[in-house]
Design a protein around this nucleic acid. Structure first.
Lengths: 232, 232
DNA sequence: TCATGATTTTTGTTATAACAAAATTATGAA
DNA sequence: TTCATAATTTTGTTATAACAAAAATCATGA
């Protein structure tokens, strides 16, 4: 009974892991990554609990964890919201991404097999296609998969989960900027350069390409955010 | 009434923050950093709750948070323990430390005032003295303060808390190795080089010195851990 | 219209009990 | 003794109620 036949609401029975806390955490996280909530949206424990059909304890735990990771922010002793645009935070996250994703890239580059390279090429084709058809959600999804396919190569689990938390953090506040951000076939050149570096067994080249990708993304996101802030 | 007149047990009233979860988290964290528990020691929720005179909910939250940060590990669905020596984990943490602490150092170096430099010099003197008198606990404490005095300069709060989690992680598993690790006036040279770089307004020199410090520590810790593992 | 204070509602936190499942101990046979 | 299995205890998780405090709402006055 793993289907939602009615389609009326989410249910904890949809998840294999027994822990409702994890279910709540994943659910909120996914909605955040999809931009389901606007910046400033409040997330009270009881509302979240009701929405997910769980008690207050798992909902509270999930929310607190996301606050700790920076994907949600506390703006008062009893109010957590989806974070607003914050250029200082974007800068900080970007610097951490450069350091950590650069590390993961360089450490894992030499372990790339032919299968990995093929997978990356296929992903890049999908990304280009999605961009042409203006399916930005798909493009972003595959872009993430492209990055993490490379990062997983180094086999450093804690590093990986830290990087994931960083992606979630920028995704939460900046999701609504992604259309403007993604329009210009962002990243194609850098991704291809990364693949080349993997084939050539040249870790620092791959790292440079990925860092370039991160920096380009930062510049676009920053520009879009600044325009948004001025317009309002 | 902020004193523990009886001295018989810890009490939540010792903390200003209203949240018992935070109290529990800080308490366990401090004990971990002091090496109060041997690797392999079990931390069941109810025991922790009783020890700290709190309910199961805050104890559970604190333990789970420490597991998530890697300071404790789950070895079964219902068993969390203080982690054993694990050279792969030490390597991973060291790589992340190099990336993140290097970043924090470089970004903050130019903001060092004369007061900061004086504070660092004073700390270094204390460290040397503590080492001479074999007060390793004090030396470690001041060593940490030395590092974080530099890292705080960059004013990147999330970066700082991520670094703190890394320190806790190695502190928990490797605390009992610190005596052997610290004997040889470890770090003096690197610390002095870092201070020089701050005075010279040379961020990459400071970064290099701090990275050297981290690498030296890693080598010593690794050697001590290997000897320990062989002996057993 | 706006500020200010009082009132009401909402909200986070925590202790607790109940349940299911894991960990531990006891038991028995080879 | 050693290993498998059964019985027992311990343990993590969750829903819930109660409480205090914060947030929202309303009323009142200028």
């Amino acid at each position: 009974m793993n289907e939602n036949t009615t389609g009326e609401e989410l249910s904890a029975s949809d998840l294999q892991s027994g822990r409702l806390s994890d279910f709540a955490y994943s659910s909120i996280k996914e909605q955040l990554a999809r931009g389901a909530y606007k910046p400033g949206h409040k997330l009270p424990i009881r509302s979240v609990a009701e929405m997910l059909n769980v008690g207050a304890t798992p909902a509270r735990e999930a929310i607190n964890r996301l606050v700790f990771e920076g994907a949600l922010v506390m703006v008062g002793p009893k109010t957590v919201i989806v974070p607003h645009l914050d250029l200082a935070a974007l800068y900080e996250v970007t610097q951490m991404r450069l350091a950590l994703e650069g590390l993961a890239t360089e450490k894992g580059a030499l372990r790339a097999t032919n299968d990995i390279v093929d997978k990356l090429l296929a992903l890049q084709e999908k990304i280009t296609l999605s961009l042409d058809e203006k399916r930005y959600g798909d493009a972003l999804h595959d872009n993430k998969e492209f990055h993490f396919t490379i990062y997983r190569l180094c086999e450093m689990p804690h590093l990986l989960s830290t990087i994931e938390a960083l992606w979630l953090r920028v995704g939460a506040s900046f999701h609504d900027l992604y259309p403007e951000f993604a329009e210009a076939k962002y990243g194609v050149h850098n991704h291809l350069a990364a693949i080349e570096g993997l084939v050539d067994k040249d870790p620092s080249a791959v790292r440079a390409a990925m860092e370039n990708d991160i920096r380009d993304g930062y510049r676009r996101l920053k520009k879009a955010a600044q325009q948004r802030l001025k317009r309002q």
